[in-house]
Every structure is written in C-alpha cells, then in structure tokens.
Amino acid sequence: MTDFMNANGGLILAFLGSAISVGFAGWGSVIGVGMTGVAASGVVTEDPSNFGKTLLLQALPGTQGIYGLLIGFIVWLKIGVFGDALVSLTLQQGWVILFACIPMGLVGFTSAIYQGKAAAAGCAIVAKRPEELSKGMVFAAMVETYAVLALLASFLMLWFGVKL
C-alpha cells in the first residue's frame, strides 16, 4: 500500500485536485445558471422582448464553471495529460496540486450559487425596468469578484508552487 501510494499517490492527488476544481465550480454554475434561467423564463413570459437581457444575466453565474475548467486544464497541462506520457509526481507535489485547486473549487461552488441568486433577482429588475439591466449585472458581478480572486490564487499556486 505504501509503495503504491509512493508510486502513484502524487498523480492521484493531482487528478483529485483537478476533479474538485472542475467538478465543484461546474456544479455551482449549474445551480446558479439554472436558478437564473427559472427567473428569466418568468420574465420572458410577461414580455418576450426581454429575452436577450435576461440571457446576459443568466450567463453571469456560468463563468465559475469555466474558471474551474481552466484550473483543471492547467493541472492536466502540468502533469502531461495531453503529452505522450504522464509525468511522475512525488506525493508532496500531488498534495500541493490538490490544495492549489481547492480555492477554485470551493469559492467557485459557493460564488456561482450566490451569483445565481443575485442574477435571478436582477431578472426582477429587468421585468420592471428593462433599462436598468446594468445595475442588476453589477450586483451579480460583485459576487464574482471572489471567484476571480480564487482563480488567481489557484493559478498562482499551481504556476509557481509546482515545478515539474
């Protein structure tokens, strides 16, 4: 068992990390985008001309999933998923990659959900005053700030913390 972990543990942890980043951030986006879609449909029922505006709002909580994929992609790039063979990682390197992925997964998950709530409420703004769309978008974007910071944190940790 110990031998197995020493030989493969690094890679396993790295894959776990990328799975957390892609999986959780994507999960959050699914919830956020879905929530906004429900609210947006309600608005469009009343006035179909608001489709474009509410679609913009619906796209906002979707970015976390993309950020998550981005971090996952950087991990795969580092460990040679796209190359000819996987790079062999030490356990320590594996742990570093795993922890580097956690900010993106965790913050991506929660911020997408809460951004979805803000964007869904933004749909209510569009319903009553379509010309005030930007305000709704900014409220939602305030939440995204932390996903952006987490993306940066995860990226910097991966880029500088893992030398292969």
């Binding site: 970015t63 993309i66 950020y67 981005l70 992609f73 796209f82 700030t145 952006v148 940066l152 990226f155």
Partner: peptide, 22 residues
Amino acid sequence: LSYLRLFALGLATGVIATVVNS
C-alpha cells in the same frame, strides 16, 4: 487588489483559447 481581476480575466481568455486550440 480589486484590479487583479484584469489579470485573472485576461488569463481566462488566454487559457480557454488554448484549450480550444489544443
């Protein structure tokens, strides 16, 4: 620190483009 988003969003564009290409 809020202006770090300039980097992060630029990064997102570049890396997604790279993903698409590869």
